[in-house]
Design a protein around this nucleic acid. Structure first.
Length: 310
DNA sequence: GTCCAGGGTGAAA
DNA sequence: TTTCACCCTGGA
């Protein structure tokens, strides 16, 4: 067993001392779409590795399916989990915020992921007028059909390269149930395959310029662009507004009556600054819990502790 | 069985 | 600035 400041490695897994992380809300809460429940945790693909992630005391336990894949695993996982983000600064700054304060005390384990930009872009173009179960179905099926296998199960695949998607073509995606989104996905794949657009370069580009480059793609509007910027391109100042978030902003903050989605996003970026993406996730999660509670005929109550399993 | 909403976007009015 | 078509899947 070896120990470092960042992780503890045992025979077949790595412990990441990253504090409490709510893996269901973080990995399966609408940021990423290819994590599946497995042995008291979630199984998915990060880089070239199939891993199982489970919550452990004071952090996360990460177990690669291939036991030889331990080298560099903790670094890769810390990157993926956005561990370099300013979570502490965010917690301190918004501890007394009327919306975020209770959210932070109730479920502190949310993180903003740092995903592969191409898979992220593909997923959020797919998300247009869709819902999470269907996005998972679509993204999962194209991955299984075209992705490079890196493990024993059908889902253990790397997301197909843009070249492969471009080659497969629009009809292929339509046949998989992508609907009208297929006509956006193939040109996007071609733009990246041809080198006309380099997604990873956008990590070094300013928020504003990177956003403009994404929106230039057909099928990518402000909402999808902000998802990709927040969840894969290192833009913590990104803020995603859908109608639920818009309602939350009106409810908790003094937003002008006439504010539309676009105005609200500008306002939120200005208000939350470099913590906008984190604020966004906590707000979204709070709204989602509240909605779920009301659908079940009750009211959402803030909890002091995460999910105590009965 | 029908009806409808779902983390939108682009084009036309 | 507002309205509408676009595909289709799961839940009510």
């Amino acid at each position: 067993m070896t120990t470092s400041e960042n992780s503890t490695i045992t025979a077949n897994s790595v412990f990441l001392p990253v504090g409490y992380v709510d893996i269901e809300a973080t990995l399966d809460g609408g940021q990423a779409f290819r994590w599946w429940p497995a042995n008291d945790g979630y199984r998915g693909v990060v880089g070239r590795r199939v891993v199982t992630v489970s919550e452990a005391d004071g952090g996360l336990l990460v177990t690669p399916v291939d036991a030889k894949a331990l080298d560099g695993l903790s670094h890769s996982m810390l990157q993926y989990l956005g561990h370099d983000q300013d979570l502490e600064g965010f917690r301190t700054r918004f501890a007394d915020d009327p919306c975020l304060g209770p959210a932070l005390r109730g479920y502190s384990g949310l993180r903003v992921l740092r995903q592969d930009p191409w898979e992220c872009l593909f997923s959020f173009i797919t998300s247009s007028t869709s819902n999470i179960p269907r996005i998972k179905l679509n993204v999962g099926s194209v991955a299984e059909k075209l992705g490079y296998s890196v493990g024993p199960e059908a889902r253990d695949v790397m997301f197909p390269e843009p070249e492969v998607i471009a080659e497969a073509g629009e009809q292929f995606l339509r046949d998989l149930g992508f609907g009208f989104r297929a006509k956006y996905l193939v040109p996007a794949a071609e733009a990246i395959a041809s080198g006309r657009l380099n997604l990873c370069d956008l990590r070094e580009t300013s928020y504003k310029d990177a956003r403009a480059e994404l929106i230039a793609l057909h099928g990518v509007g402000e909402k999808v662009a902000d998802c990709v910027l927040a969840f894969s391109l290192d833009k913590p100042e990104s803020f995603i507004v859908d109608r639920h978030i818009l309602r939350a902003l009106h409810k908790w903050y003094d937003l002008p009556e006439k504010a539309n989605l676009s105005y609200a996003a500008d306002w939120a970026r200005d208000f939350f600054g470099d913590h906008a993406a984190l604020a966004n996730q906590y707000m979204f999660h709070r709204e989602r819990l509240a909605r779920r509670a009301s659908e079940w005929g009750g009211t959402h109550v803030e909890r002091a502790l995460p999910e105590d399993e009965g």
